[in-house]
Simulated assay, not measured.
Amino acid sequence: MPQQRSPLKVHPTLPTQDRFQLHFEDNRLLAALLGEFDSHLVMIEDKLGIEAVAHGNVVMLDGPTGACEVARDVLEGLYSRLEAGGQVSAGDVDGALRHARAGRRAKEAAQAPATSKAPSKDRPGEIATRKRVITARTPAQSAYINALQNCDLVFGTGPAGTGKTYLAVAHAAALLERGETERLILSRPAVEAGERLGFLPGDMREKVDPYLRPLYDALYDVLPPERVQRGMETGVIEIAPLAFMRGRTLSHSVVILDEAQNTTTMQMKMFLTRLGEGSKMIVTGDPSQIDLPPGQTSGLAEATSVLDGVEGIDHIAFTNQDVVRSELAARIVEAYNKAR
């Protein structure tokens, strides 16, 4: 008599496996969704630990139920963006994955016993300019965009590559295009960060330009080149070294202070008190890259502490988990953090 096989035992701690079948009507949009050689689908597989296969206009998802649900939400959300005339890049896929996973964690936390309902984080924030639409790639970026839209003074701090400066410039450019502000003023503490502009050749514009290059790059990425050039010629877009801010009142403007970790306490207080009627200020910096002389307190660190909880002010602190420049950049930041 053949031996009977015992029934399969399901381990209670293993995630439930599932299969999802997604149908997409437009093959042309589906090709853009999946990426060249299905590269976007491969990214989703790698990030979520599932198997994703496309056949015609159908995408099959196999793996843990929760991971498949995240993949489904990401693919359907990005497909809707394509239907609306948008574009999808590898960075957009990565951002959608981060938001979807954060949203799922928030949903699970809200369903847990004795836990207050957590807000959903699965919808990325957006900044629309005439040249392009910038979509948040992490929940922290979405929170940052929300703060920029609702507060008159926003601090964005964290490591390089988190988008804090780029999003600040994009938001300011969008306000300028919509006529919601009259000027855009960009500043950095180049003079007091160990460099002396007086020893550099050229006029003040030529001396300051190298220090403000990241701000220029962001401007040209979100505005047409002729708009940037015309704005600089007419003073609508102004480059102002921090040292030249003293005594000014900045009204009806968006003022961005970059590399603010290299301000002194007095410089930061001076800058913040320039805020005039109808203006917004955005202050960005990386507290881990302070170039001030030893023993000197960073004005950025003090300001975020002193102004914590003040109405109309928000502070978004990015971490290495929010680095979107590249995965290698994120690993470099994490390695340096561990080495401290």
Rank of each mutant, 00 (worst) to 15 (best):
R325T: 03
Q149R: 15
Y336P: 07
G278E: 10
G247D: 10
L250K: 13
G161S: 08
A143T: 09
G202K: 08
E334R: 14
I290F: 01
L275G: 07
V59I: 15
T165S: 15
R81H: 08
L78I: 13
Q21G: 11
T263R: 10
I239S: 12
Y211K: 08
V306H: 06
M245N: 06
E180F: 04
P159G: 05
I256T: 09
V324R: 01
T165Y: 01
L48A: 07
R196C: 00
S253F: 02
G231H: 11
V333I: 15
V306P: 02
S253H: 02
A172K: 05
L307K: 07
A168Y: 00
R246D: 04
I290S: 09
E259N: 12
A128T: 09
G66H: 03
L61W: 05
G66F: 00
Q3S: 09
E180I: 11
K107V: 01
D221P: 03
L223V: 12
G103E: 03
T165M: 06
G276W: 00
G194A: 07
R230A: 15
A172R: 10
L275A: 13
G91V: 05
E311D: 15
A100D: 06
G77R: 14
T249D: 06
P139Y: 02
G49F: 02
A90S: 10
R19Y: 04
E233M: 12
E192V: 07
T284V: 02
L186H: 10
P64S: 10
G202H: 05
T297A: 12
R19L: 09
Q17S: 11
T284S: 06
C151N: 14
I185D: 11
P124I: 04
D62R: 11
E327K: 10
L175S: 12
R230V: 07
D291C: 02
S279E: 05
E327W: 01
Q149C: 04
A240S: 15
G247N: 11
D291E: 08
R132H: 01
T135A: 05
D152T: 13
T181A: 11
R230Q: 14
Q21H: 12
R132D: 00
G86V: 04
G63E: 04
R196Y: 05
R5P: 03
T138E: 03
P287T: 06
G312F: 00
I185R: 09
M232W: 03
S288A: 15
R205F: 01
E206G: 04
A84D: 14
S116L: 13
Q296W: 04
M281G: 08
T249Q: 09
V53P: 01
T273P: 00
E108A: 14
N27V: 06
S89K: 09
R205K: 13
E327Q: 13
P210Y: 08
M43C: 07
L41N: 10
Q229W: 00
R28K: 10
S6P: 02
R248A: 10
V236K: 15
S142R: 13
L82R: 14
R72G: 04
L275W: 00
I134C: 05
V53Q: 13
V169A: 07
V255Y: 01
I316D: 08
I134K: 04
A32Q: 14
T234Y: 05
T284F: 03
A240W: 02
Q229F: 01
E238Q: 13
V42D: 06
E277R: 00
G95A: 07
G49P: 00
M266Y: 03
Q87W: 00
V53L: 12
A339D: 15
Q296T: 15
R98Q: 14
P12M: 09
T135P: 01
A303N: 06
R81G: 09
P225K: 11
